[in-house]
Design a protein around this nucleic acid. Structure first.
Lengths: 123, 123
DNA sequence: CTTCTAGATAGACAACCGTCGATGGAGGAC
DNA sequence: GTCCTCCATCGACGGTTGTCTATCTAGAAG
């Protein structure tokens, strides 16, 4: 919500490389806050893994076992955090993962001292 | 807290690859909850970027501008989430990032469909 | 028009969270 | 022993959050 493309100042520097600025910490924590609930983690996963990478509310309400307003509420939080996008088609609202949003968080959390997971392509 | 080494069931599968189980979602969200506060993000970053990769409470209380009990409270939450470790040496308590803890989260958030950040070495 | 369905919004309530000041406890210096 | 420093814990306070039911809007079908 800070910038149109969602790429703000804390875009590339791992958390562990240098002390993060207060502003960047606030912005980062807003995204983690969206992931700080088991239901929202499940919703994000359900949407991402759904056919075509998108899902409507009716597709995911029953799996999580909560009321429809509660699911809408959680989806709104994920959208406002910039993790999900919403597209209305007719009566249905389709949600999908914003490209690069999770990758951004993944990069920030990457530990520069651990040389395991990210160097798969060496040689 | 679930297992000694902190590597639980949600260890390697990206969130977006398949629907996460409710238990894994709960476990994951507990770690994100620890990062869902700007102060804790800053503390984690300050500890990681501090000389030797460790810091005592007195090193990081003044930078965040909060009372010492509040800082201790946040550090405890980060420890209980398995992100920080604590070692007492004399009067001082030294905190350091648990090796692999952030990398684990980074892997879970990695988007398998986005071939940008991790494949910089192509061509 | 009416009716049905998908979804968002509003309001309420209990539970949780971040912060503080005050206190307690363990080492080190003397 | 006394004193001081570093840090954890306690209790309290206001603000936020997750969930519900009830209601509202918008589109599709008749």
């Amino acid at each position: 919500m800070a910038t149109p493309n969602g790429q703000d100042a804390s875009c590339c520097i791992p958390l562990t490389a240098a002390p993060i600025t207060p502003d960047d910490a606030t912005e980062l924590s807003r995204k983690f806050k969206a992931l700080a609930d088991p239901t929202r983690v499940r919703l994000l996963s359900l949407v991402a893994a759904h056919e075509g990478g998108e899902a409507c509310v009716c597709d995911i309400t029953e799996p999580v076992g909560l009321s429809q307003p509660t699911v809408s509420h959680h989806l709104k939080i994920l959208v406002e955090a910039g993790l999900l996008g919403r597209e209305q088609r007719g009566t249905w609202a389709f949600y999908s993962v914003v490209p690069g949003a999770l990758g951004h968080l993944s990069d920030v959390l990457r530990d520069p001292t651990a040389r395991d997971a990210q160097n798969l392509v060496t040689t």
